[in-house]
Design a protein around this nucleic acid. Structure first.
Lengths: 334, 334
DNA sequence: CTGAAAGCGCTAACAC
DNA sequence: GTGTTAGCGCTTTCAG
């Protein structure tokens, strides 16, 4: 493919001039700029970014590491990151970690070896970020903190809003409320479980019944299994607090099979569900600010890429508690 | 950061040997391999991919260009591409085109300038691929063909399955059936509209009433607007064939407002909707093979990257017509 | 099996 | 303003 030398020869200038024309800033006389552009056009010249990156040891790629792009919550977040990135001239490399530390580490290696300009990551429970930090690659965490590392983070206010959402179930008259949360050690799961427990203590004066507190991976099947177990208890719950949209979907599927959809059995979905037809239901849905999380994280990262070196910043975004859903919702959540 | 020279010095070998150790194949004696690995480990060495890419003019990045990653259909497709890519040692660069030719061209430029190893693209109506093809970057189209270009494509069987799905509405007793399809010129929209028309002609012997045939961008708002118009016609339709999941969601939202959900007014959603609670409804849903489309496209691309130069291949994948949905569906579609 | 040396295409001092 | 020059970090002949 054509190089700057080909263009230079054709335009009757030096390679440096061509470089100056395409990399912007430096001063080049008007008529040479035109000559260069014409020559480049004729040759179908496109600057080789690898050469540029190597020379400037910079990159215009941001790695976006998410547990699962299929979860609309992360899809939205990723989309927001891409929008901010593109506006600033960056591209996004998509990295699905599946919540697997090995996969995560592998991608971190790729990102460091590239090297990318920066990393936005939804960290797994015990993420190791040393590789990136030792190599000076800026990292911003989103949705969860990276415990033990001093890096920027943007998260949702899981604790308080879980408590508030659980309280709505009490307000609606439910009394024997179960909780299905994510894996132990996952920050969002722990926080939401904790918020739920606070609500129970506040309203009943007692700790929640351990048999009603379940943990499961954040997916539909996990929600189904947990709900099935709960509903076949000698004393089944009269409401289920699901700490994640997938878990809620699983629970609803089971309740649908048992002909026990809300309001028979109350349901909180922490984090909305895409396009779900909520009309016939009374599902209480919280709205996680997926876009905003992604946007803010990308902005923090860009600042770091630009050299900001203040101490780590942590931003907590509010969660909107939607009351009972009605109509076709378009809400998402982790 | 440490380079192969640092590692070489520490291990008491030449840079070439270090390179050989990390780039695989070439023969290096066992004890030197160990010395090199140890030195690299101690220095926290990670090979710089940009340098490698520049030297070998190769890349391990695949560009995935989709209209909108937020549509679960494309999310799934992207995920499948990433899975195949990662297994083969490639990373995926995410490019949202928003169906905008300018954006698409911009990303094509980025991909060519990188240069990436290959491109998987859901082409917009009049995509121009010359840039990529002139530069020898392999391209595979997915979901739609790139008209006028001789490139591999993997698509769904839109025509026949649209006809079949529309027929199901007739079978269910609906007679005045409207069609809401995507923008003119978008292959999937045209094909699905055509399939619908075939069904109408087959069942009524006449062409469909033009007033019942609508076009709209593939999004929720478009579906809403079209459905609202249709339902306020002097003679409103008794069923709506929506050529895309988003359009169907919009239509359902309107029908919900009018208290005219199925079976009052029949609905076909061409392409499933994520997590929608179909239980109370009688929505006829077709299942687009999103994962399979992505997987096959990625496989074709990898073959091209490996140098395959046969004439363009076109694969058409079957669409499963799901009959009336029941329970919580997890189906997706463009 | 190993090392020396020559670039891949671009940018950034440095002179003019 | 513009050209010359020297690499960025790696791979890859080519000798040995």
């Amino acid at each position: 493919m054509a190089t700057i030398y080909d263009v230079a020869r054709r335009a009757g200038v030096s390679a440096a001039t061509v470089s100056r024309v395409f990399s912007g800033r430096a001063n080049v006389s008007q008529h040479r700029v035109e000559a260069v552009r014409r020559a480049a056009e004729e040759l179908g010249f496109v600057a080789n970014r690898n050469a540029r990156r190597l020379r400037t040891s910079s990159s215009e790629i941001i790695a976006m590491m998410v547990p699962d792009i299929e979860n609309p919550f992360f899809t939205l977040m990723t989309r927001a990151v891409e929008d901010v990135a593109r506006a600033a001239g960056y591209s996004v490399m998509l990295c699905n970690t599946d919540e697997d530390p090995a996969r995560e580490q592998e991608y971190l290696r790729v990102a460091v070896g590239d090297p990318v300009a920066g990393i936005v990551v939804v960290p797994s429970a015990n993420i190791r970020l040393d590789l990136a930090l030792d190599h000076g690659v800026p990292v911003v965490c989103v949705d969860r903190h990276a415990v033990g590392y001093d890096v920027d983070a943007v998260v949702a206010d899981n604790l308080d809003s879980s408590q508030a959402a659980a309280n709505l179930l009490f307000d609606a008259g439910y009394r024997r409320i179960a909780c299905v949360s994510g894996p132990e050690g996952v920050e969002t799961a722990d926080q939401r479980m904790a918020g739920f427990c606070r609500a129970v203590r506040q309203r009943t004066g007692a700790d929640p019944d351990p048999v009603l507190c379940r943990r499961s991976p954040y997916h539909l099947e996990g929600g189904e299994a947990a709900a099935r177990e709960l509903m076949s208890l000698p004393q089944p719950p009269d409401a289920i607090f699901a700490a994640n949209n997938r878990l809620a979907a699983g629970a609803l599927r089971v309740l649908n099979d048992l002909d026990a959809l809300p309001p028979k059995v109350g349901v909180v979905s922490f984090g909305g569900m895409p396009l779900i037809l909520l009309a016939p239901l009374g599902v209480i849905v919280t709205h996680l600010p997926a876009r905003e999380l992604g946007r803010r994280a990308a902005e923090l990262l860009l600042e770091r890429i630009d050299g900001l070196s203040s101490t780590a910043r942590s931003i907590t975004l509010p969660v909107v508690i939607g009351g009972e859903g009605s109509g076709l919702g378009m809400l998402y959540g982790e």
